[in-house]
Lab assay of single mutants.
Amino acid sequence: TIDDAFRAIERAIQAENEGRYREALKHFLDGGEMIVTAAEKEASQKVRNLLLHKGKEVLEWAEHLAEWILE
């Protein structure tokens, strides 16, 4: 659900702030994927587009974090 997705993102932010970057990455990926999944089930085109945009933002952040971890 969207609530689960945002809880995962909150955990990711907390982990990132505490320097637990790999854990943060996992939570960002989980949250982003949950948002995209919820968007695919959404009946309203406007809400679907907003959710897809937010999911994409979260997944892009996860990608940047992963690249930073690997440096």
Rank of each mutant, 00 (worst) to 15 (best):
T1Y: 08
T1L: 15
T1M: 13
I2E: 03
I2N: 02
I2H: 06
I2M: 07
I2Y: 06
D3Q: 14
D3M: 14
D4T: 04
A5H: 02
A5G: 05
A5S: 02
A5V: 07
A5T: 02
A5D: 04
F6P: 01
F6Q: 04
F6T: 03
F6G: 02
F6C: 14
F6M: 09
R7I: 08
R7E: 06
R7F: 04
R7G: 02
R7Q: 08
A8H: 11
A8F: 12
A8G: 02
I9H: 01
I9Y: 01
I9E: 01
I9Q: 00
E10R: 15
E10Y: 06
E10I: 15
R11N: 04
R11I: 07
R11Y: 06
R11G: 03
R11C: 10
A12N: 01
A12D: 00
I13G: 01
Q14I: 11
A15V: 03
A15C: 12
E16F: 15
N17G: 08
E18W: 06
E18L: 10
R20S: 03
R20Y: 04
R20V: 02
Y21W: 12
Y21E: 01
Y21D: 01
R22P: 04
R22F: 09
R22Q: 10
E23Q: 04
E23H: 02
E23A: 04
E23K: 01
A24D: 01
A24T: 01
A24H: 04
A24K: 01
A24G: 01
L25K: 01
L25Y: 07
L25G: 00
L25T: 00
L25A: 05
K26S: 06
K26D: 05
H27I: 04
H27C: 09
H27Y: 13
H27F: 11
F28K: 00
F28I: 04
F28T: 01
L29Y: 08
D30M: 14
D30G: 05
D30S: 11
G31E: 03
G31H: 05
G31W: 11
G31Q: 02
G32P: 01
G32T: 09
G32Y: 15
G32Q: 07
E33D: 09
E33N: 15
M34Y: 06
M34D: 01
M34G: 05
I35A: 03
I35P: 01
I35D: 02
I35Q: 01
I35M: 14
I35T: 01
V36K: 11
V36S: 06
V36F: 13
T37E: 12
T37G: 09
T37A: 15
T37M: 11
A39Y: 07
A39Q: 04
A39P: 02
K41N: 11
K41Y: 12
K41E: 08
K41W: 07
E42P: 02
E42C: 14
A43Q: 13
A43C: 12
S44V: 04
S44N: 14
S44T: 09
Q45C: 12
Q45F: 04
Q45V: 09
Q45I: 13
K46W: 14
K46T: 12
K46E: 14
K46L: 12
K46D: 13
V47W: 07
V47Q: 05
V47S: 04
R48G: 04
R48K: 11
R48N: 03
N49W: 06
N49R: 05
N49L: 07
N49K: 04
N49M: 06
L50M: 13
L50K: 11
L51R: 00
L51V: 01
L51T: 00
L51H: 01
L52V: 04
L52D: 04
H53K: 15
H53Q: 15
H53W: 12
K54I: 15
G55S: 08
G55M: 14
G55L: 15
K56L: 12
K56H: 06
K56G: 04
K56A: 11
K56D: 02
K56T: 05
E57S: 07
E57A: 10
E57L: 13
E57K: 13
E57Y: 07
V58A: 13
V58R: 00
V58H: 01
V58W: 13
V58S: 00
V58G: 00
L59K: 02
L59V: 03
L59F: 12
L59S: 02
L59R: 06
E60Q: 10
E60Y: 06
W61Q: 04
W61H: 11
W61D: 00
W61I: 05
A62S: 02
A62H: 01
A62F: 11
E63Q: 13
E63R: 15
H64D: 05
H64W: 08
H64V: 06
H64G: 05
H64A: 09
L65S: 00
A66I: 10
A66V: 04
A66N: 08
A66C: 15
E67G: 11
W68C: 10
W68F: 09
W68M: 10
W68N: 06
W68K: 08
W68G: 03
I69V: 05
I69G: 02
I69L: 10
I69K: 00
I69E: 02
I69Q: 02
L70V: 13
L70C: 14
L70A: 13
L70E: 15
E71G: 14
